[in-house]
Write a protein that binds this DNA or RNA. Sequence first.
DNA 1: TTGTTAATGAAAATCATTTTCAATTTAAGG
DNA 2: CCTTAAATTGAAAATGATTTTCATTAACAA
Lengths: 157, 157
Amino acid sequence: MPKGNCRGNGWWHGKLRGCGYRLTMGREAILDVLSKAEGHLSAEDIYMKVHPGYPHIGLTSIYRTLDVLSGLGMVYKLDFGDGRARYEFAEGPKGAHHHHHLVCTGCNKVVDYTDFIDEEVELLRETEKGLSKKYGFKIANHIIQFYGLCEACAKKK
Amino acid sequence: MPKGNCRGNGWWHGKLRGCGYRLTMGREAILDVLSKAEGHLSAEDIYMKVHPGYPHIGLTSIYRTLDVLSGLGMVYKLDFGDGRARYEFAEGPKGAHHHHHLVCTGCNKVVDYTDFIDEEVELLRETEKGLSKKYGFKIANHIIQFYGLCEACAKKK
DNA sequence: TTGTTAATGAAAATCATTTTCAATTTAAGG
DNA sequence: CCTTAAATTGAAAATGATTTTCATTAACAA
Ligand SMILES: [Mn+2]
Ligand SMILES: [Mn+2]
Ligand SMILES: [Zn+2]
Ligand SMILES: [Zn+2]
């Protein structure tokens, strides 16, 4: 173990530095939480997960870091209609398991689904190409979300 | 012309009343603006369009009405990432021209597109059916948005 | 016309996110 | 390791969209 608990073994070290950003303790802590967390975290969720280990990192920095990371495409910023932004890690070079979302407008439950993704993605790729040409956009990204009621909420009438 | 300038010739009269809502001047004014407006209006945009004709209608009521209308599926509430919700009329029984969105993350320009819509919609319908069965959701709605840079913003580097 | 109750406006409250600014930290170079 | 310039940060204050409160008004069933 060279140089003790040296930071910077994560693959994102290079990504950040490569884009001219400094690698700080706060950014690492946030990336660490995001990369491990399952669901869709709000800025405050992340703050609360980071806080125990790094009590001096403020919510402001969480927001700032999330901006940087989503600017770099390392995290996705999502809106499920509950008044706060949600973030999810854009999986690294290893396991690329692209997915879309199914949102319950009753209880705000969100399901990640990967079924049908292949067909969807193929169509999207073509659509993207067509739109790029027709409207002159350089497309970087897309969102597909289905809205409805989960079983429980549908029952409640 | 029976009964003078009687309100309530719009097709939405029935829709609102049928769902137990009262038909008020404010609601009509808002529906009127939404049905005629092109783009994607924020609550305040709508307020400003309604104001000249109905100066007593407050922003609060705009928000309240928009909630009702989107609850009924008569308008869509959209998020293009600029910090305020945007609303667009969900076209009535007549011209159903479903569309999706292309959003510039540089200048927030939004393009409605209908190209490819048919293929997309068909795939979505199947996906919807599959998801409904697998996850027990009663799906009411979907969103597809592409994000990228418009020509102008891409040039600005 | 009348009574019930939903709907409304104005003002205050909320609350997620942003801005400000002085202090700290990073990382490049000696 | 030491120095230095610039990026980054935390704390507190500001912002701004949306919501809540509450007394008043308007819609509409009877
Ligand atoms: Mn997800
Ligand atoms: Mn549109
Ligand atoms: Zn639900
Ligand atoms: Zn643009």
